[in-house]
Design a protein around this nucleic acid. Structure first.
Length: 271
DNA sequence: AAAAGCCCCTGGATGC
DNA sequence: TGCATCCAGGGGCTTT
């Protein structure tokens, strides 16, 4: 499932190659989560300046306006000079002078949205409430500590909500909490400053290592060159319920939190 | 304002 | 073999 590392790995795998490309044609498949927000032909002739990332969104800056691309649950992007004929799950093709950018998304929770400006209403609706970038300088310990003090929900759900810190989805929230020895059910405002310190470091460490490994390919994630990631091989708790903890051999436990599964070691992660 | 629950979607696993 | 059911979860939306 694309979280920050998968989106960043995707970005890195095509940003340089698409920069400077001119859009020649746009093809739409089945509807995605939201409509494109402009007539496809309006994009023809514009050029792609650069590709940025905000949380789990890819931002394609055009010489006029920008495209916000979200991979949802099952999305992946391909950017090649020659792409095969569109399949039933290929819902967006941006044909450019340097290759075709294709969004493949079986479950169609993903989206491609055009906006005149990053500060426009449509863009702010998607980006406006996002928390800080965990791999950036703005993710500092004191602000993180303060933000967690203001929340009473379980820490796992506070991380997933993305209003304090972005990009941490179900896999990396479980892994970061394991690495910092915190049980997912602990209330955010009850965490000691010592534990917040560990969690802060663990989030950065887990996400950065996942980017280095090319992300996690649980099912079918691949980058824009079709390459899989390998971080799933390093998962300590995610998807390992009943299996022995790699640190203490205790069976990993799965619980439900907010319609999502959480995984933890009952010995290594204390309430 | 925060928190909790609902819903969108399809493929794969499971059960009868 | 076939069919029904459940589950995966990002995240915006609505309700509490």
């Amino acid at each position: 499932m694309p979280e920050l590392p998968e989106v960043e790995v995707t970005r890195l795998s095509f940003a340089d190659r698409i920069a400077g490309a001119t859009i020649g044609q746009v093809r739409l498949g089945k509807p995605l989560r939201w409509p494109l927000g402009c007539v496809p032909d309006d994009l023809v002739g514009r050029s792609v300046l650069q590709v940025r990332r905000r949380g789990k969104y890819l931002l394609l800056d055009l010489n006029q306006g920008l495209l916000l691309v979200h991979l949802g649950m099952s999305g992946s992007v391909l950017f090649e000079s020659d792409v095969p004929a569109a399949g039933v799950h290929d819902h967006f093709d941006l044909v450019t002078s340097r290759g075709t950018l294709r969004l493949h998304d079986p479950r169609r929770f993903g989206a491609v949205v055009f906006s005149d400006h990053e500060t426009s209403e449509v863009a702010q609706k998607l980006l406006g409430k996002l928390g800080v970038e965990p791999l950036g300088d703005a993710f500092d310990l004191s602000a993180f500590t303060h933000a967690l003090k203001l929340r009473k929900a379980p820490i796992k759900q506070v991380l997933l909500a993305g209003q304090v810190v972005v990009g941490v989805g179900n896999i990396y929230a479980s892994e970061a909490l394991f690495q910092s020895g915190i049980r997912p059910s602990v209330r955010s405002n009850r965490l000691s400053s010592q534990r917040v310190l560990k969690l802060h470091a663990a989030i950065r460490d887990v996400l950065a290592r996942a980017v280095e490994k090319g992300g996690s390919t649980l099912k079918d994630f691949s980058n824009a060159q079709g390459q899989s990631g390998y971080f799933q091989l390093e998962a300590k708790v995610y998807g390992r319920q009943g299996e022995p903890c790699k640190t203490c051999s205790t069976a990993i436990v799965a619980i439900r939190q907010g319609q999502r599964s959480s995984f933890f070691c009952p010995v290594c992660q204390r309430p």
